[in-house]
Design a protein around this nucleic acid. Sequence first.
DNA 1: ACCCTCTTGATACAATCGTTCTAAACAACA
DNA 2: TGTTGTTTAGAACGATTGTATCAAGAGGGT
Lengths: 209, 209
Amino acid sequence: MAVSHKRQCILDFIRDFLDERGYAPTVRDIVRGCDISTSSVVQYHLDVLEKEGYIRRDPQVFRSIRLGAGTSGACSVPLMGTIAAGEPLPVPGSDAWQSVPESVLSVAESIVRGRKDVYALKVKGTSMIDALIDDGDIVLMEQASTVADGEMAAVWLKSQQEMTLKRVYREANRIRLQPANRQMKSFYERTGNAEVQGRVIGVIRNIGS
Amino acid sequence: MAVSHKRQCILDFIRDFLDERGYAPTVRDIVRGCDISTSSVVQYHLDVLEKEGYIRRDPQVFRSIRLGAGTSGACSVPLMGTIAAGEPLPVPGSDAWQSVPESVLSVAESIVRGRKDVYALKVKGTSMIDALIDDGDIVLMEQASTVADGEMAAVWLKSQQEMTLKRVYREANRIRLQPANRQMKSFYERTGNAEVQGRVIGVIRNIGS
DNA sequence: ACCCTCTTGATACAATCGTTCTAAACAACA
DNA sequence: TGTTGTTTAGAACGATTGTATCAAGAGGGT
């Protein structure tokens, strides 16, 4: 069933308010924003919208309106730095982890899917181009100390003091690190020297200026 | 300067609270969540955190805490459907636009960058694989009726009643639509038959189960 | 000890805000 | 006309919550 005009207006207002100010409007904010005469009218429409699943609220909690059937969730994900070759990099769980992230991204819950210890890295270089990850893309990582063969992972090379993003394959007593780029060669590490830090669970790219 | 232990705890609590419930905690929520004895202590720490730029608040506004120096912004972007070939698709600004989106994504402000009329589409097929856009990826679109040569755009083909995602090049009195896939051929349309609906401004991919 | 800044504590005020209640206007319909 | 369901109004209650105030402890440096 379609939403009535007034209710559509209220939904739009909530969305705009949320985008602009970062928190939800109160009933009385909506009164002002939608030219409605009194709060009970808004209350009435909100009740209907909630029953129909367009919004969710927590009773008695101010500014608790959230949009959209289940889809609402934004997750805060810390952008921890750049991954290429060279720099070390603190990861969640390590001692250095409480360090301040470069910034905090807001990511759709549909990507994070309830996982804990998710962080983001900016990719430098085109070593993963065949996996459709370009220079400048942001990869979302889940903290993990082991991954399945062939998964993309951030690997810490102890003796080189390097962090690198590769596909990981376990072999006899070594590990094969394979770039997803036909122009680059795989290389091998002693099992003890390569430490998996996390697996790639998503990619975000920004196009244009 | 680093954040003290207690303040780090408060920051973590706010982040978790925000992720779990979708709105910010009150001073008294933080009292409970961080085992602090009284609201004035929280108030004190919040004042410091705000002065240092870790959070922002609006005076007198309940639950108005937002995280992160400027980075906070989450934008609501409607996921309007799937793009491949075949289905028509309402776009922002058209009459059908107020129609209910499949869902509402929450996307980092850093991708939307203040643009208006941004929407999202799920990509079907691998016709844009060489542009690093895979089957199942989500593309973020900005509503636009013209694009520069070579930009990726969603194009509406009137007579075929089809929507398609291609690179667009204007030629003499026709338009070349070029897939980003070496195994597919470009094709041409009369200028009047091809209507640009939007340009691609970002890509979001989800990896794993 | 003394001073200084940072931090904790308890309490209270007043504004904000969700909710409820009652009544009426309005529309569709038999 | 009467009936029913939806929407609009106005006002008020009381819980929630940001903030202010005043007091005191904790630690460091001189």
